[in-house]
Design a protein around this nucleic acid. Structure first.
Lengths: 140, 140
DNA sequence: GATAAAGCTTCCCCTCATGGGAAGGTCAAG
DNA sequence: CTTGACCTTCCCATGAGGGGAAGCTTTATC
């Protein structure tokens, strides 16, 4: 029953910037908002929930493409939770892979940093390790 | 003494694509390559080492901006390893932060996924958790 | 009621690191 | 000599936004 909000108010309430709200509408992730006579967008409770949904999904690291699928499922009364879970599991796999990659970098870089004295001398283990072996012989 | 290589050969040897080699030159990360009379770029041993250096740094997750600093230090005989280490430590901090963020997402999403039955029913704990509480009362 | 400030609209350009592809010149093998 | 592989530059696209200009509308202040 509350009166619809302008885009700025909706942004403040949902934590999604006005810029992004327009963008989500443009790419079809959100239905086109209602408009006042003068063209201002208006947002009701349902739209606010969709914006909040998108915000939460972004917080969980879902891509906009995944979110688009999730929002469709959310709006679909005939959805199967299997489909939702499949998207979540895929995203969990992506997250695990990214973590593994970052761990790899962290391990390698920590090792190099430990070997670097970090003083005023020019000698540096980090820089030394940065040239692939097969290029060392091709020296100047 | 080896004869200089074309950009494609340099790319194959260093693992940096020809496209990226041109780009690195364009943004000033690499000195302009020598050219044949007909305009083909040529790469000698030193350039190959720089390309390998960039490749390794990318593998460690450094941004191009950080790599630009690292390459400058690498070329500078008067560098202090302190400066190199500072860049590495900063990058390690960035990595830790990203890992923490991904761990947070992973924890939250695993919890939600565990609560979702993942069957043919429409009821889904993941979707339910996606609407921020303060928007639940603003329902349709 | 007038005016100023804030908010809205669309439109265009920027990021970062990289890939795709077109149009056209060059080189090497058959 | 032709063919195909390679090179050149130039423009466009990605994802997930941000910045800002020009111009209109609404709200607040006097």
């Amino acid at each position: 029953m509350a009166k619809p909000l302008t885009i700025g108010e909706a942004a403040a309430l949902t934590g999604v910037s006005a810029k992004m709200i327009r963008y989500y509408e443009e790419i079809g992730m959100l239905p086109a908002a209602a408009r006042t006579e003068s063209g201002y967008r208006l947002y009701n409770g349902f739209m606010l929930q969709q914006l909040g949904f998108i915000r939460q999904a972004r917080n969980l690291g879902f891509s906009l493409e995944e979110i688009q699928s999730l929002v469709k499922l959310w709006r679909d009364p005939c959805r199967e939770s299997r489909e939702v879970k499949a998207i979540a599991e895929q995203h969990l796999a992506d997250i695990s892979q990214k973590i593994a990659e970052l761990n790899r970098m962290q391990q390698a870089l920590q090792q190099l940093a430990a070997d670097c004295r970090g003083d005023s001398a020019a000698n540096c283990a980090i820089l030394d390790a940065m040239i692939p072996e097969h290029l060392l012989t091709a020296a100047v």
